[in-house]
Amino acid sequence: MVKNKNESSKPVIEIKEMHKWFGNFHVLKNISLGVNQGDRIVICGPSGSGKSTLIRCINRLEVHQKGDIIVNGTELTGDLKNLEAIRSDVGMVFQSFNLFPHLTVLENCTLAPIWVKGLPKKEANELAMELLTRVKIPEQALKFPGQLSGGQQQRVAIARSLCMQPKIMLFDEPTSALDPEMIKEVLDTMIELAETGMTMLVVTHEMGFAKKVADSVIFMDEGEIIEQNDPKNFFNNPKNERTKLFLSQILNH
């Protein structure tokens, strides 16, 4: 895969010395991370390492207590206006899809564009159909989420996020709730998305995806970023003992 790293790339996400606690539990410790336009970053680590919490902090589904997070030049604070602007620029795909079960696939995709962005209904429908075609399920547009398979639901969730035309996409273990035969169709969709130059942060255990798509792989453990490297060096030549242990556990079975 060709990696056309833009020289003039500017940071779209900057996290500086960020800390987060759940009650007394220090879940994220001194996280610093810069993400440039077009970067594809995979975050992995054992469960409970804080990787999901980290990307949920980026669109403030979780609130950090210390340090700065700057998305698209805007600092994340309690200001609701800023927050809604940032959220409509940052798409998110969840492990459990979180589609709206009472709305059709098409309505799931058009709801936010119509009401948050003020897109006319006709345009929103066209955009949604275009994106549903891109994730290869335009024929399901009038069904309800409950009638689709897990893989199809997750692809709808991706299309729904893309309908907001976000600049950044966050994926929180997008394939962890899927049956094995459906993982590939979702990963293929994500790979195609990566090829369009989308900035992506992906929390996943799919190391094949990381090797194929990522510019950079981050390993987290116990709330810290232990190691960050390009995929080749990360998998072939891990530096930290904990990274080695993790990789040996996840790859050798």
């Binding site: 589904l61 809604e84 459990s96 979180n98 948050v116």
Partner: peptide
């Protein structure tokens, strides 16, 4: 489920939009 609110939040919907389109239709049903 909590995920419904998170999805609505992540799409940039505000409280009243979420209430009108996500919370109430499901809660009333």
């Amino acid at each position: 489920p909590k995920g419904q609110y998170e999805a609505a939040d992540a799409l940039g919907m505000n409280y009243w939009q979420t209430t009108r389109f996500i919370t109430l239709p499901q809660a009333l049903k």
